[in-house]
Every structure is written in structure tokens, then in C-alpha cells.
């Protein structure tokens, strides 16, 4: 379960906070990052995601680009919540998040702040915005796993 009390006002504030002050936005200066690009046909969203991992763990995750509130906040949150996690836990969290957006049964115990997007499925046109960062990191992690990194 999230460690904060869930009310709509708080949820709004979390989204706006990550939108106005994204913690993980920028192009990394260090080495060892893999990069992927994600964009939307129906929205202006156009972002690059950078992932650094070692020994089966996410060391750092960053993103850069133009994005609406929902994609900015959701991408920033997935970066934040993957850092420090191993691939398995990261992928499990992402899977639960995607189920939540899809309005299927999900395990909310691993979602933490990402729970604020629980109602995004109401706005069909923004589902892609809420998932583009998450799906991109999922694919990057799966590729890392395959490589055995």
C-alpha cells in the first residue's frame, strides 16, 4: 500500500509536483546509460529515456523531452521508483501499474506514489501518456535481462 493517505487532493498535488519539479528530468552526463525513444501519435509527447543498470539492479533512470502533465509525472515517477530496485521487482511493479491503468485487478502494495494514476483510464486519450514511460522502461529492462546484465 502507498505510505500516504489516499485522497484526491493529495493525488492531484503529487501529479502537479512531479510535473512542475520533475526529479529525474535531464540528459545524464555520466557513462553507461542505454537510451530509448518514445513518442505518441495522438499527443505531443516525445521523450527519451535513459537507464543505467548493473548486476541486475537499476542504478539510475532519467528522461528528457516534451510531454503533457500526465506523461511527465508518470514517467518521472517510474524513474524514481525503479532506481535501486532489481529487475524482477521493477518489472513486477510496472506490470501492476499497467494492470491498474487497464482497469484490471492489480497489486497496489508495490505502486507507492504511482497509485495517483488510478483513474487515468477514465480519459482514454491519455492512457498512452500515462504508460509510455512505464512501457519504455519495461522493454529496456527486459532487454537487459535477456543480455544477462
Amino acid at each position: 500500500m502507498p505510505t500516504f493517505e489516499l485522497n484526491p487532493q493529495m493525488m492531484r498535488e503529487i501529479i502537479m509536483d512531479h510535473y512542475s519539479n520533475p526529479r529525474h528530468k535531464g540528459v545524464p552526463t555520466g557513462e553507461g546509460y542505454t537510451k530509448t525513444h518514445s513518442s505518441a501519435v495522438n499527443c505531443i509527447d516525445d521523450i527519451d529515456i535513459y537507464l543505467k543498470s548493473s548486476n541486475g539492479k537499476v542504478v539510475d533512470a532519467m528522461w528528457e523531452g516534451t510531454a503533457c502533465t500526465i506523461s511527465t509525472a508518470s514517467t518521472d515517477i517510474v524513474c524514481e521508483q525503479c532506481i535501486g530496485k532489481d529487475y524482477k521487482d521493477s518489472l513486477y511493479m510496472i506490470e501492476q501499474y499497467l494492470k491498474m491503468i487497464d482497469e484490471k485487478e492489480y497489486d497496489d502494495s508495490v505502486l507507492d506514489e504511482a497509485i495517483v494514476f488510478m483513474n487515468t483510464g477514465k480519459q482514454a486519450a491519455r492512457i498512452h501518456c500515462a504508460t509510455m514511460g512505464w512501457t519504455a522502461i519495461k522493454e529496456m529492462l527486459e532487454a537487459e535481462e535477456k543480455k544477462g546484465n
Binding site: 499527443c43 505531443i44 503533457c68 480519459q123 486519450a125 491519455r126 501518456c129
Partner: peptide, 12 residues
Amino acid sequence: VFAQDAATFLNS
């Protein structure tokens, strides 16, 4: 308000 967010709000 970012344009896409505005349009989603108008949709609502």
C-alpha cells in the same frame, strides 16, 4: 496548462 491537459479537461 499544457494544451493536451486542457483538451482532456475540456473532454471531461
